[in-house]
Design a protein around this nucleic acid. Sequence first.
RNA 1: GCUCCCUUCGUCUAGCGGUUAGGACGCUGGCCUCUCACGCCGGUAACAGGGGUUCGAACCCCCUAGGGAGCGCCA
Length: 471
Amino acid sequence: MTVRTRFAPSPTGYLHVGGARTALFSYLFARKHGGQFVLRIEDTDLERSTTESVNAILEGMTWLGLEYDEGPFYQTQRFERYDQIIDELLERGLAYRCACPKERIEQLREKQMAERLKPRYDGHCRGKEVSADEPHVIRFKNPDTGVVVVDDMIRGRVVFSNEELDDLVIRRSDGAPTYNLSVVVDDADMGITHVIRGDDHLNNTPRQINILRALGREVPRYAHVPMILGDDGARLSKRHGAVSVIAYRDQGYLPEALLNYLVRLGWSHGDQEIFSLDEMIELFSIGDVNRAASAFNTDKLDWLNQQYLQHADPARIARLLSPHMGRLGIDPATGPDLAEVVRVQAARAKTLVELAEISAFFYRDFEGYDEGAAKKHLRPVARESLEQLAAAFELMSFEDWTPAELKHVVERVAEELGVNMGKVAQPLRVAIVGRAASPGIDETLWLVGKDATLRRIAQALRYIGARAAAD
RNA sequence: GCUCCCUUCGUCUAGCGGUUAGGACGCUGGCCUCUCACGCCGGUAACAGGGGUUCGAACCCCCUAGGGAGCGCCA
């Protein structure tokens, strides 16, 4: 039997991190076992489903690199099939027409709640002959005795009593099938062997198994994964910041970092923290997924993103960084090779957005100095070293403008003035960068280039002069 | 209300009857150092509570508490 898993989102919003993790687990399980991963769009709710959502989900899957082998299938294109199944159940006496008005159902529910009972349909129309001509829904005739055992790959053995279940609606009065019916038909028709989904579906599982049995179809294995909470332990929502995977992309996270973060949420392999996709496929085991919900921790995602940023191929990061530079109004082609910039800056940023921000000075003069940095380093005492540096740089040829040569020059000036490196390098850094933080002064100067270096030193000297005059 | 699920440092987790309860993020002390960051060394901090079972429980059982989900003509 070939393993087949599926991801079945309903297109009523973007792809959020919880869904992405469920998709990842399904994907990993299929890949590990040489099976197929299917994408199915559950759009039977015509009111709330939108094509924008479908596109957002597909975009998210593509960005994450979760390739599906079949699909996307759309449930709205399979209504005929659901009708066929419902008619079959009706003919075989496994389902029946119910003409109970909504008011009766509501009254029933209220009465049951008042009696501290679980609200359930009472089977009022079970034995009745309701004409197909009058308004009605179709209900599945659920067994009223015995138990249903769900042998869940994550939860273990969960037992439900049929007495807790009622005759659920499988076809609405408008003729559309309901979720519990369509999901079962699709999983069976599509040969899904392992259903990996959110644990909010655990309570629906016994109903689905009963329908499957009535249809004489094979019951798949189930794995119900716990949900993801916000940093505060509350259910994840917009107020926690980004929940859409596309928002993470836009904020400058790498897909492999997000996948790595998500796979570790609820799962682990010893003390290992960093997993390539291949390692995930090799090592992931659905049975080892934690049963408890886990909180999304952006600090740890940031750390992972930084890890990937600094170890990834600089050329690739440069390609991903380029649009973020553009967003700052910078055309990377007008300055140093972006890949070199990435090479010297990558360990200093948590996201591509941050990487772009701290790298802007390589491409354009900054607007104003960081207050604290200027106050501390751009003082009259720095005048002499900056003047000497400028004079020395002025004499350097294009060929000599290398990190090694630049380092010699700065060291020589420090030596001549009888001060340590810091006394010379820090004022220079603030003059060139505008802030007190940057890569090594040699690489910084090298990438900024001679023209901008001299221009910014002159600017810094004017600043110091103005400041001295003001005092 | 009823049914089902869950509970180890602040967070993610290891543990699968005998451990000084381990690692990671965060926070923090130090080292490295031209700054920042990286890296390295160290510190902080947890078995929800109560009963059993057992020579011995974070691990097994029961109860309580606290979270969560479901109980739709949503998915």
